[in-house]
């Protein structure tokens, strides 16, 4: 099925972007994308039309959720990367600020926010990806935005300047 392969292939860049923002770790992100592709190609015969992109986001979102759950069952194995130099300013500090703000969110809130603002999915599509009603998606968005604002206001008042 050429259309299916093509659909998957053209989505790879967006999947990498989403995975990176979701995990904030380049290596982990590409592992997730690879697992998503493996799963998608193996499930090709189960794909009965519909939006390939949403379907791939769904697989990746679920894989990441499972990954976090299995990590939560074990003691932490890996130190969290933290090579932030203090007193940084400018766009790089801003980029790190938003990364850290994303890190404080609950997984489902982070996924909902990223799917909307980074990946440009509609609320309806996000509801399908997350398997919840649209109202739940909107509540997740609202909580995510409130927490990011609180984090940035509390921790780094200067981020307001970052656009």
């Amino acid at each position: 099925m050429v259309g299916f392969r093509q659909g998957v292939e053209t989505t790879v860049p967006a999947l990498r972007r989403y995975a990176r923002a979701l995990t904030r770790n380049a290596e982990l992100a590409d592992d997730l994308v690879q697992d998503t592709l493996v799963r998608a190609l193996r499930s090709e015969h189960l794909f009965h039309g519909g939006d390939i992109r949403s379907w791939l986001y769904t697989i990746l979102t679920n894989l990441n959720r499972n990954r976090l759950r299995s990590l939560a069952r074990r003691p932490p194995m890996q130190a969290i990367e933290d090579n932030d130099a203090p007193d940084m300013t400018g766009p790089e500090a801003g980029a790190r600020d938003i990364e850290r703000a994303l890190a404080v969110l609950a997984e489902d809130q982070r996924a909902a926010l990223l799917l909307v603002v980074l990946e440009g999915l509609t609320y309806r599509e996000v509801a399908e990806v997350q398997g919840v009603p649209i109202g739940t998606v909107m509540s997740r968005l609202a909580r995510a935005r409130m927490q990011i604002r609180a984090y940035l206001d509390g921790e780094r008042p200067t981020l307001r300047r970052v656009k």
């Binding site: 860049p13 972007r17 980029a95 938003i98 703000a101 926010l113 603002v117 981020l159």
Partner: peptide, 13 residues
């Protein structure tokens, strides 16, 4: 916030 997220991650795509 949305601008900052896109500024940080868009280039990866």
């Amino acid at each position: 916030q949305a601008d900052a997220i896109r500024a940080r991650y868009d280039a990866i795509a």
